[in-house]
Design a protein around this nucleic acid. Sequence first.
DNA 1: CATGGGATTGACT
DNA 2: GTCAATCCCATGC
Length: 203
Amino acid sequence: MVERVGGGPEVERLAVGPRLAYGFYDRPVLDVARDLVGAVVRHGETAGRIVETEAYHHSEPACHAYVGVTPRTSVLYGPPGVAYVYRSYGIHALLNAVCEHEDVGAAVLIRALEPIDGIDEMRARRGIDRVDGLCNGPGKLTQALGIDLEDNDTSLLDGPIEMLAGAPADVVVGRRIGITKAVELPWRFCEAGNPHVSRPWPS
DNA sequence: CATGGGATTGACT
DNA sequence: GTCAATCCCATGC
């Protein structure tokens, strides 16, 4: 069964399938990051289609798991298919999906969404009226969807944050942004031409 | 126990 | 383009 959202020529692109299962996350983090573009995140009445992700892996210093297992990183070293939500710059909550086998330490950062559902609620939470700018950044999308640190370590398979299969997307690859270490790795994945991608745009 | 550094954003020059 | 807000947590004494 496939539930459809919206109408007209957008129907196929916005098609929404079932929740992504354990086996989707239990794969190399680069594959998961690429394949999550086009999937849908839902939290309560609000939902958006993923248009930008980044991969993080314990083997490189930009990843929180680089320091090994600590109270903060234990979620990253836990089983795949779990949400890792942490506070950034003391202000924002950032949403990740834990990937790869248990004890590996890898996750995909969800960086931007195309708003699909509950847009009025997103506007209220974000305090803005326009639709563009609602979810075009990792801190903005968690605010719009009402995701916070209490969602850390909750299951994406049957917890409050739903990750739903979507239609395949045309993906472009670039360097991760907003980091100071391992900046050369091309581990950022964006839907080609999508206006809801955060800046700076991939080249 | 004190310190320092962010996987960001919005306001401002 | 610059810059401050703000808090969790890893690290080191």
